[in-house]
Structure formats: C-alpha cells, structure tokens
Simulated scan of single mutants.
Amino acid sequence: MSVILATAGQDDKIRFWEAPSGICSRVLRYADSQVNCLEITTDKQYLAAGGNPHIRLFEINNSSNQNPILCLEGHAGNVTSLGFQRNGRYLYSGSEDGTVKLWDLRSPTYSRSFDSKGAVNSVALHPNQAEIISGDQNGSVKIFDLGSSKCISDIIPDSRSSSTSSHGRVAIQSVDVSDDARTLVAANNHAEVFVWNPADATMNQSNGEPCRPVAKFRAHPLGAYLLQARISPDCRSLVTTSSDRTARIWDTATWQLTQTLSKHKKWVWDAVFSADSSYLVTASSDRSALLWNLRTGTPVRQYTDHDYAVTCVALNDSST
C-alpha cells in the first residue's frame, strides 16, 4: 500500500482508510481501553497503538489477522505518546506514570526506563537517534541521552500566562524536533509555544546556564487549550491544534501564522503532515478526521465512521 492512514480514539477501534476515497478499508478492535496515540513504522509494516496502560503492535498488510502480534506491558498509566527509531527495531513511549521507556521489539518487556518525575504528555526522538525529548505535566522539557541513560537537559519554560501557578510552570502538552535537528519545539496546554536550537539546549544546561528560547509566542487565543504541535517533514511549518476547533500553520522561519484551518466542529486533538508537507490530516472530537490541501487551505476529504471522539491519527505516504 502506498498510503497508510489510520485513526483511533474513544470508541476502542482503529480504522484504516483509503485516503483518496474516504472509504474505511479495515477496522481493528483495541480491547479494554481508548487509544491515545498511533504510529506507523517507516517501512509501513506495523502500526503501534498506545492505550491504558499497554502498547499493542499490529500488522498492517495482513488483513486476516485482527489481533496484535505484540503487546508491550510495563507502563502503569495512560501511554500518551510513542514512536519508532528509524530502523523500526525499537519503540519509545511516554506515559502518565511518569516514565519514558525504550522497547526492543524482539521482547515484550522494556529495555530501559527513564524517570521524568512527572506525568509525561509527549515524547520525541532526536534525528541523531541518540536522544529522547519529553514534555511533562510539571512543565518540564527533558532530554535523555540513550548512551549514558542520563537526563542531560531539564528545561522549564517561563510561562507568560497570568493565571499560571507553581512559579510559572504550565504542563507541557507537546514536544517535537525538526528532521534537520535545528529546531526543538515545546508547547504548553495554555497554547504557548517555545522554540530552541537543540544543540544550545544541551550545551547551556551542561554549562549551568539558563536555556532561553530563540522564539516564543501564543499559538491560540487565551483560554484555549493546545493539544498537539508537530513540525513538518520539510521543516518549514509547524502545526498546532486546539480546543478552539482549529489547526494553525506557522512559518518556522518567522514564526508567523500562515493558515488557520477551521472546519472542525469540536476540539482538534491531533494532526500529521504528509511526507511532502503539502497535506495535513487532523483528528477531532466531532468524530471525524479531515484531509487538508495546504496549498489551498481547504479540506479535500472527510473520514467519518467513528462513534466517538477521534483523538489520534497516523499517516505514512512516503515513497521509500
């Protein structure tokens, strides 16, 4: 299959879609839990789904097998974020149990666990494949070195929100690193976005210096919750999604708003870019996902068979 598109959420089902037609081609049951996050391997062979508290791995190209081929047990709370290392042999995950875990997919148990000292909302793998970044509910952005198994950076962004308590700490809802390794983004649930150079983030921390962002801005209106922030594969755009029912596109050169995508009727939980960064899929509490053409800023396809909120989406349309 050239395009793999999957959505999931609160109805305990994972749905695969024929992206151009909007037809649901396959449904997998995810027993015992809602689905919080999805990720597809680079080779399009496997889909990982994170729930409460387990991670399940499914075969994509074997429609006769509806059961997971691997169930990863070890987290003690909601798995909020996950991803694969480039070769697909390892999976990393973050959980509300306060840990970031690394899994060797040849084994059902985790190979390494890092203590975030706070419920983890988001994890991202540095393009060097040697560092994992986490964002947690204590308002901290941590960088873990896989070689030494140590936390090499712990950044607490200074929130500007007047309603902020706990000395300026606001829960970090989403973290991401650009594929060119030049941009680290962290967004809190008050819709404030902080931008660093990842190299500066680790260097300043090692020198004991404060790590000041190179840019910071509010992505959505005061009072709105930010739910997701992702950098496009071409590193030129950032998408943020929110309770204000929009997804917004930002230029990473200027950090200016370029598009507001506003066809959803309820919260927009997740978004993922196409491989060429010209399309975007969004997932919403209105029980739908939308495929957007970013050249025109308009939706070109809707995916609507879910019974409840759609909270996560995965897309792999790469040609390699």
Rank of each mutant, 00 (worst) to 15 (best):
Q228Y: 09
V123F: 06
N293Y: 12
R160W: 00
C312Y: 12
C235H: 04
D180A: 05
L70D: 12
N188T: 07
T202I: 09
Y303A: 01
S25P: 03
T164I: 11
C24G: 00
T240A: 01
G297N: 13
A6L: 10
R248I: 01
H167I: 09
S165C: 10
K101D: 12
Q10H: 15
W267V: 06
N316A: 13
A275C: 02
D244Y: 03
L227N: 09
L261T: 11
H220V: 03
P20S: 08
I69A: 10
T99Q: 05
K263W: 10
V35F: 00
P221S: 09
I156N: 11
T296E: 14
K216V: 10
S122G: 08
W196A: 03
S206Q: 14
T109H: 14
D136F: 04
G98A: 00
T80A: 04
L102N: 08
T258C: 06
V100H: 15
V177C: 06
A187Y: 01
G208V: 11
S232H: 02
V281N: 00
G139V: 11
H75L: 02
N121V: 01
G9E: 10
P68F: 06
R301I: 03
V239W: 09
G297W: 11
S178M: 05
Q137P: 04
T7S: 15
N52W: 12
V79E: 10
D11E: 05
D234F: 01
S232M: 06
S2T: 14
V313K: 13
N138P: 00
N121E: 14
E39M: 01
E39C: 06
V300R: 03
S274C: 02
A309M: 03
A229I: 00
K117L: 11
H190R: 12
Q256L: 12
D176Y: 04
H167V: 05
L291K: 03
I249E: 10
F273I: 09
L290D: 12
A119P: 08
D136S: 05
G50M: 04
S25H: 01
N188Q: 10
A181P: 01
R182D: 06
G135Y: 04
R301P: 02
T241W: 00
K150G: 02
V281L: 07
Y46D: 11
V272E: 13
K101P: 05
E96T: 05
A8T: 13
N67I: 03
S174E: 12
Q34H: 10
I155G: 03
R236V: 01
V141I: 11
S63R: 12
G208E: 09
V177S: 06
